[in-house]
Design a protein around this nucleic acid. Structure first.
Lengths: 379, 379
DNA sequence: TGCCAACATTGAAACGATTCAGGGGACATG
DNA sequence: CATGTCCCCTGAATCGTTTCAATGTTGGCA
């Protein structure tokens, strides 16, 4: 009564509502129910706009929503999950957050999840198998609705799949795939990417080209090399084995910089001639540039260098790096969509298919490549 | 029967256990209870090693644990939380994952949380206020036990605090603090850091020094500039206003590279003389180096450059960057410890204090700085 | 008047764990 | 034989939602 008087001016008729005395107890649905004079069931139906809400009187809805707002009601996600089986969370496992390759992918994933009002639970495996497994365990306990694995190393194993498919949790991998279509995956088309880079160098007139191959353990290595070989053959570029090196297995994100640096120094010491160097990834390329510069070989004037990935610093380096871009943000987004599709399919008891998607890479031409100068020394 | 026969050889007497027929139904505590022949209560007590477990017969424990393992029982985190009020999760909000400044901090946070078996829920605000608020909402719905905010922009507002302190969720900020000790914070000692860099340049003989100040909106800007001014005064270095520029407000992580580049170009065009340039952060420094190099000014031979932060690429750049390192991983770890302390205090109904910690920065000397050459032209 | 459909709301049973107040049984003690 | 004390274990309530079957109330129509 005391309240209703003041409210006369407002268009909304607003019944009195007791604010919860500044206790730190959370406001529950029951509170909203008692305060609004309806039952918890009704409140739930209204606030979730459930099918039954069709039958709820508009005035009731308004009243309940008003009380909920005034009380600052926030649904308890755990309780909700317990009943509805939907956690609205997605596990995101990756191998190393400090790897620049990862961060843009994560951005893409995060962005898409946010659109869908899903919460990401991040799990950084630090490239360690046991950490991977432990995190997987934690994610399963939390009943993530789906799982995205950003991995490039081969160690991620079958055990994972067993668990996932048994509990049928939709999953997708990025940058990594399992033989035999057992799990959805998103990868860049490595073979095409490598071809693009080599084609570019070839087009610029380079014929004596040094290569830094990726480590065996990395799934990307083989197809990229294949792309190189195929194009070399078709363009009649001779690959001199003495100009080919292979990165060692390493779990450290920045190690390929060191290796690229060291390999290039060795190459230079051996007085091998080459007018271009094609590195497995951007970091190796930057390492190579560093070595070349240090030895007084100017990039790109005397030697062109290409990378792969287009990580953030490639654009900032001096000279900026010509490289093959992986559409990382898009890859992250696509993986989310694939998993979402799986979640929805399961919800509607539809069938759905495992998809393996190869994204198109894009050649990004910057400063580190240039046409072979026909006049003047190329050394 | 078929099972027990095979088990005879094993030392553990093992009673038969029905494996859940390959349904995808999750195995619950009730399953373990019925299969083992004890009540859910007992199972809970045993599996959690609750206080009451003192009174449970060893044989019972063994049996229950065995059944749980065989069935592949995994506790349902949500159900557990609903009862126990402990979500074992921590909200981690940050402004932009693509900012290299962020990633190492996140690594530190993740690492410490992992030790404590807490799951991080990552929320990337993209430097947008509404996104920040929406995520905060989502984190609260999920009842994270604590919150860590990695922020440097000033827009994070009081509203946040109201919500947090009302629900008394322990929180800590990294790289940002609120006036008046209302929330725990971990920051680098910006003033000291700036002094270290300037001291270094001074020590190398530089007197004509250009400065790129940070944007006003960034909390780090003021103390760093203060550090510069104080040292300049005590060392009688004259700061020429014509050599001082200020980065614009921008939400893009890489914008300071552009700005650093542009500012330096302008400086060079104006034919201002300087032998060293001190940039607000690493990206601005790299931009500056780029501009200098482009203009034919050799770094460090003709001009020394320093940065701040020591982000990952600073070591890889050519020349590698002399900079002031923030102990980012340690800062992340410390923030987690602070929040954990708050959680535990609340649990034990202890009092606990808000702490503001200033971490010591460290000067990292690399290739981009060199003593002023007394002979030869410095231009 | 009687019956049915549509409307508006609710009671109560889950969901899967935790927790605490007991409850039998065994054994010792007075 | 009554009582007390450990031991070992369990029944049942509870956490905050969702959801379904059920209930009472209208109004329309034959």
């Amino acid at each position: 009564m005391s309240d209703s008087g003041r409210m006369m001016m407002s268009a909304e008729a607003s019944l009195p509502v007791k604010r919860s005395s500044s206790k730190n107890e959370a406001v529950t649905m029951r509170d909203v129910a008692t305060q609004s004079g309806f039952s918890p069931a009704t409140v739930s139906i209204v606030l979730n706009n459930a099918p039954l809400a069709r039958y709820i009187a508009p005035a009731t809805k308004k009243r309940i929503e008003e009380v909920a707002r005034k009380l600052g009601y926030r649904p308890n996600a755990m309780a909700r999950f317990l009943r509805s089986k939907r956690s609205h969370s997605m596990g995101v496992m990756f191998f190393d957050i400090t790897d620049p390759f990862c961060t843009l992918i994560l951005r893409g994933i995060e962005n898409s999840l946010y659109q869908a009002s899903y919460v990401p639970i991040f799990a950084d495996a630090h490239n360690q198998r046991n950490r991977f497994e432990r995190y997987l365990e934690m994610l399963l306990e939390r009943h993530v609705e789906g799982l995205i694995v950003v991995a490039n190393w081969l160690f991620v194993d079958i055990q994972l799949l067993a668990d996932l498919s048994k509990r049928n949790i939709p999953a997708a991998t990025i940058g990594w795939e399992l033989p035999g279509q057992t799990i959805s995956s998103v990868m860049v088309d490595n073979e095409t990417g490598a071809r693009l880079a080599l084609e570019h160098l070839h087009h610029l007139g380079h014929r004596k080209i040094a290569f830094i191959r990726g480590p065996k353990m990395l799934i990307d290595s083989a197809p990229r090399w294949r792309g190189i070989q195929k194009f070399a053959q078709s363009a009649r570029i001779e690959i001199d084995p003495a100009l080919v090196q292979q990165l060692p297995e390493s779990l450290d994100a920045n190690s390929s910089f060191e290796s690229g640096f060291r390999f290039t120094e060795e190459l230079l010491q051996r007085k091998k001639r080459f007018t271009a160097l094609m590195a497995f990834d951007d970091l190796a390329a930057l390492g190579a540039i560093r070595a070349l510069t240090k030895a007084g070989v100017k990039v790109p004037e005397q030697c062109s260098v290409t990378g792969f990935d287009d990580v953030a610093l490639s654009a900032l380096a001096a000279p900026s790096l010509t490289t093959v871009r992986q559409p990382m943000e898009a890859m992250g987004g696509l993986a989310v969509n694939i998993v979402m599709e799986g979640i929805n399919a399961a919800l509607e008891k539809r069938e759905w298919n495992i998809v393996s998607h190869k994204m198109n890479p894009e050649l990004v031409i910057r400063e580190s490549t240039r046409a072979v100068s026909l006049v003047g020394a190329d050394d």
